[in-house]
Simulated assay, not measured.
Amino acid sequence: MGTITFLLVLSFLVFFHELGHFLAARYFGIKVEVFSIGFGKKLFSKQWMGTSWQFALIPLGGYVKMKGQDDTKPGLVEAGNDSYNNKKPWQRIIILFAGPFANFVLAAILYFAIAMIGANALSPTIGQVVPNSPAAKAGLKVNDEILRINNTDVKQWNEVGKYIVQSKGALQFYIKRDGVVITRIINPHISDSENIFKEKIKKRMIGIAPAPKVIKLNLSPIEALVFAYDRTVESSKMIFKGVQKLIQGVIPSSEVGGVITIGKVISEASQSSIIALLSITALISVNLGVLNLLPIPALDGGHIMFNLYEIIARRKPSDKVFMYLTVVGWVILGSLMLLGIYNDISRLLK
């Protein structure tokens, strides 16, 4: 059942990504010859609206084949205004960007659905107070519920940390204790900490930790839209930073996961709850959007770079350069895939 869920989720994400390319291409009048879910041997196809819609043998990706677009023949020019290569560079950039953008839109839709169903979050209830910390000196205690900081209402624990880190000067906490609301003035201090990448950092803290108490957020449609936007942006930033840290060597290559890890995570999420499945699907969708925008030849981001070069230099890169960089891009992608599979197998053996 887990494998079926994995294939369905992956096919859904690929479909949405390729649908972005397809709709943008059709908007500019380009003929889309093939819309494929999967690579390799064709298993099923149907001709509709001038396009061959198909499922292929290897369900680990997909593509749309537009008239006049062929990476193996970069100099290909097909006659007619419905050809990809006859379009202006800025139009091609929009078509290329439309795929990753569709993934971001899909993630936002999924996060909105999560918010409307009832997203879970940690309660803003204190579970631990560090001795001699600013919180302890101000008299905060375990089981105190934080209602407001200065003039900002608090609904979940995540908001507490964000507000403290981004604030300046002393803070006024409104606390609910034994049914009574009290106030405390706390002056955060700069302390040593770690970020999600386990790097040593310094940040404003008051010395408290959350209680293991989960609440369900009851959000209005407008609040759900804000929630969806914030989650999509935060996820995108996290993945961009993750790629940056991987390149810098902060994240070891052993942390790279492949299709086995993705399948395992999706399978476990599907067995947990619909919220968990929607959450991991949204995160993978953002991941696909970000990774496809990387300036690696053979990815959307690489092709966008080629078109930006054409706009700046007012000429296309030579066929030889295009082919060389595309081959390099495929080697990089192939190496990353093999690394992910190797790490997956190593984890399974352990």
Rank of each mutant, 00 (worst) to 15 (best):
D144P: 07
L246A: 10
I341G: 01
K320T: 06
I94P: 12
H17E: 06
L147P: 03
Q128P: 09
N151C: 09
I311Y: 10
V9F: 09
G127M: 04
Q156K: 15
G179Q: 10
L7R: 08
M116L: 07
D71Y: 14
S318Y: 06
T326V: 09
L171E: 10
V214N: 13
I94T: 10
P134Y: 01
G263N: 05
I222K: 13
S11G: 12
A282W: 00
I58K: 01
P74I: 09
Y229I: 01
V105M: 11
P89N: 04
K264R: 13
S273A: 02
K65E: 01
E145S: 14
L283D: 09
K88H: 12
V250E: 08
I30F: 11
G289S: 07
L10R: 03
L308G: 08
A24Y: 07
N85T: 10
L219I: 08
V286N: 11
F22P: 01
F227K: 10
E234F: 02
H189R: 06
L336H: 14
I304L: 10
L60H: 00
S285C: 02
S318H: 07
V14S: 00
W330D: 08
A269D: 03
V286W: 08
K320L: 08
E223G: 13
N218K: 14
I201Y: 03
P188M: 01
L225G: 15
R315T: 05
R314Y: 00
V286E: 11
I284C: 04
D70Q: 02
A121M: 06
Q172E: 15
F306V: 02
L8T: 03
E223S: 15
K203N: 09
I190Q: 02
L96K: 12
A25L: 10
D82H: 12
V327M: 15
Q91G: 05
A135C: 06
M116P: 01
I312C: 05
Q156N: 08
V256F: 06
V77S: 02
I93C: 06
G329R: 12
V154K: 12
S167N: 05
T5H: 13
D344Q: 04
A119P: 04
S272A: 13
G40F: 12
G258W: 04
A135P: 03
W48I: 07
A108C: 06
R148A: 11
Y111H: 09
S123D: 13
I146E: 05
V142R: 03
S335Q: 10
D71G: 12
N86S: 06
A136L: 01
I164K: 01
M305F: 15
P212R: 00
G257E: 05
L277Q: 07
F55V: 12
P188W: 00
I345D: 10
H189W: 00
S273Q: 04
G329P: 13
I208T: 00
Q91S: 06
I201E: 02
F322W: 11
T183D: 14
R26T: 04
V77C: 01
G329L: 07
L8D: 01
P59A: 05
I4W: 15
S235G: 07
I196M: 10
L294T: 12
L278A: 08
D153S: 15
F39D: 07
I185W: 11
N151E: 15
M49R: 03
L106Y: 11
